[in-house]
Design a protein around this nucleic acid. Sequence first.
DNA 1: TCTATTCAGTACCGCTCGATACATAAGTTT
DNA 2: AAACTTATGTATCGAGCGGTACTGAATAGA
Lengths: 213, 213
Amino acid sequence: MGRPRGFDAEQALERALLVFWEHGYEGATLTDLTKAMGITRTSMYAAYGNKEELFRKALARYTRGPAGYVAKALEQPTAEAVARALLDGAVRTTTRPDCPAGCLGVQGALAAGETAHSARDALIAWRRDGGEAIRSRFEQALDEGDLPPGSDPAHLARYVTTLAYGIAVQAAGGVCRDDLQQVADSALLNWPPHPVTPTGTGTPPRRGGRGPS
Amino acid sequence: MGRPRGFDAEQALERALLVFWEHGYEGATLTDLTKAMGITRTSMYAAYGNKEELFRKALARYTRGPAGYVAKALEQPTAEAVARALLDGAVRTTTRPDCPAGCLGVQGALAAGETAHSARDALIAWRRDGGEAIRSRFEQALDEGDLPPGSDPAHLARYVTTLAYGIAVQAAGGVCRDDLQQVADSALLNWPPHPVTPTGTGTPPRRGGRGPS
DNA sequence: TCTATTCAGTACCGCTCGATACATAAGTTT
DNA sequence: AAACTTATGTATCGAGCGGTACTGAATAGA
């Protein structure tokens, strides 16, 4: 009951997502956001809570929207296909001509001041959760014999996500899609990168001479 | 002539660098900066100009300080040693226990609002210049027969820098040094990643079926 | 010692930030 | 139509932002 909302909450959230994506959490002001959303500050607070909650809702929409390729990639039949779908998706999503360059999960709040600590932590958790989902998928692949015995699923997940994040940084700097696709293709030429002794079951081979510093 | 400066300008710049490194350009306030530098706002403006110039000077100090491993890496005798030194240096610099996690050149201003556009562009140029220096080094390696004929130095440089940026993002999220060193080692197992036809001299092999977006 | 020149500290500037109080409009329910 | 509930728009809040006059303080040269 009461007066009905005069705007489409999902569409307005999509607009807010684009602003956060382009300017990051701290760089996106309420004036920018509400102007893009086509609503007033009051309506924004009534519908989403505050800036921080608006960001979290935008991140959730990002996950099931532009970043939906991650969930789809995990459904690929083989570990290599999963890795390829992840990197191809990262290249495409970070270089879409109709969206800001880069990845919201990376550039939304990589380093931040006091006021953006919660947003930064939310993105750290977002990346960690994504990485663990990939690791879990690779564990399944290992069980299925889809990966060589002795492979470390956590390591493979870090390998893929590290490349994806690097691709996102490059895209944010204006590197074009074709150049990044070449990088993704190169990184998957030796898949899996190599069988690494799982942590805890032995001493991984490491070159010496590196001190702490 | 006149009253001499009452503080060490280089040491104060080092303190400012750490603040920018940890909180990014937008997240670092003048109160944070001057408190860490141990000087007043007035002294900061007199010595460095303004916040933007302070950031540029801090970035220059970062380049010849914590990021000095890049210049050293370019002096390695072989392309593979260059790549290895770059990734090892990235791992170590982004995970130093006495410095903020991550890379100033990445998290200083990846996405930004209006007021930080110049800082963001400065970092984009910083990354681009670094990448071109690496490309130039790989061109030299190609001339010396240190890389297989047909290798694309620009592509190899993007491959290495993409990994370095990804490592920086992982480090910013708290991933530990050993895990990142594994990623760096894996990425260099197949060096060079593969000989790619230089852009413009032919159609690089690409899998089909990918439309725009 | 006197004067010129530069540095340092206090207090403050205008502005924008995220967030809200309040009055009004637009619906639903009775 | 009256009562109630919720959304919208205006105008503004206190706080913090980057940046700056202005007043002393400290040193160099005459």
